[in-house]
């Protein structure tokens, strides 16, 4: 069985971000990238399935070459091999163009995949789009927020928690299929340094020379949406009345204000 896990080499939130003034997109080159935190849940999930059913876990990522260390750490976790789709032409992609490259990479390099496993969302884009879009490009069924799965013949049964309704739901899909793994539901295993040291041999890079995609369908050009402007988030101004000192006096002053504003 072949378990394809989609992992993004994301810009950690702690790093200073730089935005390309021309395209309004995040500059990822030259920024140390690390595996999107929630994709570790997806990787752990994939490894557990492989350990149970046998086969291979293949991580696929679209990123600039600075995404390689992130893939090395996944090999260190136990991923069998990784494919980095990387090309200058892929830069500035929105979720359509990202998922297009990922789907084409799967089709070309793992055509006999069993299950595609995505994270719930990325920390730097938080769209939760890419999983469903990959499923759409591949025309396969999908279920999000999964935290348990069993394979029965050519079907997969999944369990997911649907938080809005407070229910666990059970679905069965024809394989191949795609799931996204609910964030924080797995206990990602430790990275083995020994495995990581030899990781390079297990990472393949695919540029658009290999993938052969229409340059108009990838990167910024292949993105139906584009960022027209970006500003720092601002919050509406507040009154900022601060009551410090004697607690009882402070509370009395607060209650007076609340009464004045008709809030009590």
């Amino acid at each position: 069985m072949k378990f394809v896990v989609l992992t993004k080499a994301a810009v950690p939130l702690s790093s200073a971000i730089r935005i390309d003034p021309k395209t309004g997109t995040l500059i990822r080159e030259g920024v140390p990238l690390s595996v999107n935190q929630w994709d570790r849940d997806a990787v752990e999930f994939a490894l557990k399935l492989r350990d149970k059913y046998g086969g291979e876990v293949i991580a696929i990522s679209m990123a600039p070459p600075s995404g390689i260390p992130a893939l090395e750490s996944l090999i260190g976790m136990g991923v069998d091999r990784a494919i980095l789709a990387t090309d200058r032409a892929f830069a500035g992609a929105d979720t359509w163009a990202t998922s297009f490259v990922l789907a084409k990479t799967i089709e070309k390099y793992v055509p006999d995949y069993t299950l595609v496993i995505a994270g719930e969302e990325t920390i730097d884009s938080t769209t939760a789009h890419v999983g469903a879009q990959v499923a759409s490009h591949l025309n396969i069924p999908y279920v999000y927020y999964v935290y348990d799965a069993e394979i029965h013949g050519n079907k997969v049964r999944v369990r997911r928690f649907l938080e809005d309704e407070g229910v666990d739901e059970f679905y069965e899909m024809d394989l191949p299929a795609l799931i996204s793994v609910a964030k924080g539901t797995q206990m990602p295993r430790e990275i083995s340094l020994l495995r990581k040291i030899n990781a390079r041999d297990r990472i393949m890079q695919a540029t658009n020379k290999e993938l052969g995609l229409d340059p108009e369908c990838v990167g910024l050009k292949g993105s139906p949406t584009f960022v027209a402007g970006q500003t720092g988030a601002t919050f509406p101004p507040r009154k900022r009345k601060i009551f410090a000192g004697d607690p009882r006096e402070s509370v009395k002053a607060l209650v007076e204000e609340l009464k004045k504003e008709g809030l009590l």
């Binding site: 359509w96 789009h129 890419v130 469903a132 879009q133 999908y142 999000y144 649907l162 809005d164």
Partner: peptide, 18 residues
């Protein structure tokens, strides 16, 4: 949660952005 699950697939099927 369901809306998030559906939205991007719908957009892709319509070959539009979201």
């Amino acid at each position: 949660k369901r809306g998030r699950e559906l939205a991007a697939f719908v957009a892709n099927t319509l070959t539009t952005g979201i």
